[in-house]
């Protein structure tokens, strides 16, 4: 699978991103409840983009490690960034009126999760869901 890039600017984009992710993940051997877990994580991360940065992009890539396939999801924005990542990764912490479950929840829903953010520059979230063997 080649990389696919989706621009996210609205709540319709949030829905499109999770549907696209699910569709691509299926072609990479991901199945059953893993598809729903991954789509939910994408929904949370995409909503964060729209809510905090207004606009961003999500890239999907097929990857493999030790004979196992997976989907790599990279969400990037050039929004305000996160000053305190440790705080943002805590359950129930939110600077908006949200539930504060988006980032910590996405980490639990995916297999690998990494977040890099710089205030004034933006945020990049990198996540992987591996196929079950």
């Amino acid at each position: 699978m080649d990389a696919e890039l989706i621009t996210v600017v609205s709540d319709a984009g949030v829905m499109h991103a999770r549907q696209k992710g699910r569709e691509l993940a299926m072609t990479l051997g991901i199945s059953g409840s893993d598809l729903t877990l991954m789509a939910t994580a994408i929904s949370e991360i995409a909503r964060n983009i729209v809510q905090y940065a207004g606009k961003g992009e999500i890239e999907f890539r097929g990857i493999a490690r030790g004979g196992r396939r997976g989907i790599l999801v990279i969400a990037r924005d050039q929004g305000p960034g996160i000053a305190n990542i440790a705080q943002a990764m805590q359950d129930g912490y939110s600077t908006s009126r949200g539930m504060g479950l988006g980032l910590p929840g996405a980490r639990r829903l995916m297999d690998d999760f990494q977040i890099v953010s710089e205030v004034g520059k933006g945020t990049t979230v990198t996540m992987v869901k591996w196929e079950s063997l």
Partner: peptide, 14 residues
């Protein structure tokens, strides 16, 4: 609520 959805809700903390 489907089993997959229930599973994801628990993981998410909902």
């Amino acid at each position: 609520i489907q089993p997959d959805i229930a599973f994801s809700m628990v993981q998410l903390g909902l």
